[in-house]
Nucleic acid binder design. Structure first.
Lengths: 218, 218
DNA sequence: CCTACCGATCGGTAGG
DNA sequence: CCTACCGATCGGTAGG
C-alpha cells in the first residue's frame, strides 16, 4: 500500500550554507560507488541476486533507498559491475601470482600456483565477487554475459598451456579441455562447503587437489 | 495498488449438479500434487527459487494462482518437496545401478557406475530435481536443510568405500574424504556448462572423469 | 545524494 | 481446487 497522501512533510529543509565541499564531494563519488559494489557483492553472495533488495544494499552502504539509482541505472547494472570488478581483480592478481613464480617454473608448480590463487579468490578474505559471478550468471542479460564471459575466458585461458604441458608429460590423463572444466568445477564448488574455521587450510586443500588431478607425489 | 473495491462480481455461480466425481477426484489428487512438484522443479532450475513466482508454477501446472496453497503450506514447502522427491529418486536409482553391476565388481567399475549415474541425475532427461537441490539450498529453513541433508549424506556415503578401496590400491592419491568433495564438485558443476547438444556424450564424459581422478588406463 | 512517491508483483488467505 | 482479495515489498523515478 502507498503511504497516505495526507501526511505532509513539516520538517524544515536543511539549508546548506557556504560553498559546497566540492573537492571532497568529488573525491568521495568513487568511494560511494565502490561501497555500493562491495555491499552488493556481499549481499548477493549471501542471499542471491533475487533475494537481495536494492534497499538492503543501500542500507548496507549507508544510503537511502533510492540512492543506488544515482550511481547505477538498475539493480542488474550493479550486479554487472560486481562481476566486472571481480573478474578484473582476479585476472590481475592471477597474472601477478604467475609472474612472481617466475617464467621458468615447471608446469606442476604453475598449476599449484593457479589452484592456490583460485582458492584465495573463491574463499579467501573478502572474496565475494567471484562467487557472485559464478552463481548469479543467469541474472545478467545477454550482452552483459558476453562481456563478462570475455574476462572469464581470459582468466581460464591462462590455465590451458599448463594443462597441456602436464598432459604431454603424462601427468594429466584426461583431455586438457575437459580437464579444465572438471577442475574448475571441483574448485568452484568449494564455495559450497569450505569454511575457514575447519582444520583444512588452503595450502592443504591445494595439495590434495594436485594429488587428485595429477597424482603429484614429490 | 489493490483493485478498486467498486468492481462487484456479477457472473452467476456455476452450480454443480449430481454427485461430485469423487473417485476420479481422489485419484487425481496425487497427480495434481506431482504436477506441481514437477513444474516447480523445472522453473526453480531455470529461474531460481526467488525468481519464480507461485503464479508461474500454478500456470505451468494448469491451475489458478491460489491453488498451489491447497497442496502446500508455502512456496518453501514446495521447494522442500522438490528436493525430497529428487533425493529419494536419486538414491533409489543409484542403489539399483550398483545392484545391476553386481556385488563383486572392482572398485574402478563401481566408481564408473556411480559417476555415470550421477551424470544422468544431473543433466539427463527430465532431471531438474537434483540441480535445484544443489543450487537452492539456502532457501530452505534449518529444519528442512537438516532433513534433506540426511538423504544427501546417504547418497554420498555410498561413494566412500569405493574411494577408500581405490585409495588403498594407489589409484586415487588424494585423501578419500577430500577427494569426494572435489569429485562431487567437478561433477555437479557440469550442470553449468554441459548441454546434450554438444559432441560430448555422458559416456565420454564419464571416461574423462575417471581418467582425471584415477588416471585409469585399461 | 535524499524525499516522497508510483505501479507492479508477490506470497498467502477466506470462503466456498 | 477457484474467486476475490489483502498487506507487504519491490525496482525505479521526479524533483530538488
Amino acid at each position: 500500500m502507498s503511504p497516505p497522501a495526507a501526511v505532509i512533510p513539516t520538517a524544515p529543509a536543511i539549508v546548506r550554507r557556504g560553498r559546497p565541499r566540492k573537492t571532497e564531494g568529488e573525491r568521495d563519488e568513487g568511494n560511494r560507488r565502490q561501497a555500493l559494489i562491495a555491499a552488493a557483492a556481499r549481499l548477493f553472495r549471501i542471499k542471491g541476486f533475487d533475494g537481495t533488495s536494492t534497499r538492503d544494499i543501500a542500507a548496507a552502504a549507508g544510503m537511502q533507498s533510492g540512492s543506488p539509482f544515482y550511481f547505477f541505472q538498475s539493480k542488474q547494472a550493479l550486479l554487472h559491475a560486481v562481476m566486472q570488478e571481480g573478474m578484473a581483480q582476479a585476472e590481475a592478481s592471477q597474472a601477478a601470482a604467475l609472474k612472481a613464480l617466475g617464467a621458468r617454473a615447471p608446469a606442476q608448480e604453475r598449476l599449484r600456483t593457479l589452484v592456490r590463487h583460485h582458492f584465495e579468490v573463491l574463499v579467501g578474505e573478502g572474496s565475494d565477487f567471484i562467487p557472485v559471478m559464478l552463481y548469479e550468471w543467469r541474472s545478467l542479460d545477454a550482452a552483459q554475459q558476453q562481456q563478462v564471459r570475455a574476462l572469464k575466458d581470459t582468466y581460464e585461458a591462462t590455465w590451458m598451456p599448463v594443462l597441456r604441458a602436464l598432459h604431454r608429460a603424462g601427468r594429466l590423463k584426461a583431455r586438457p579441455e575437459v580437464a579444465r572444466l572438471f577442475i574448475f568445477g571441483a574448485l568452484n564448488w568449494t564455495v559450497q562447503w569450505f569454511s575457514g574455521g575447519g582444520k583444512l587450510t588452503l595450502d592443504e586443500l591445494t595439495h590434495q587437489a594436485l594429488l587428485l588431478f595429477t597424482g603429484e607425489e614429490e
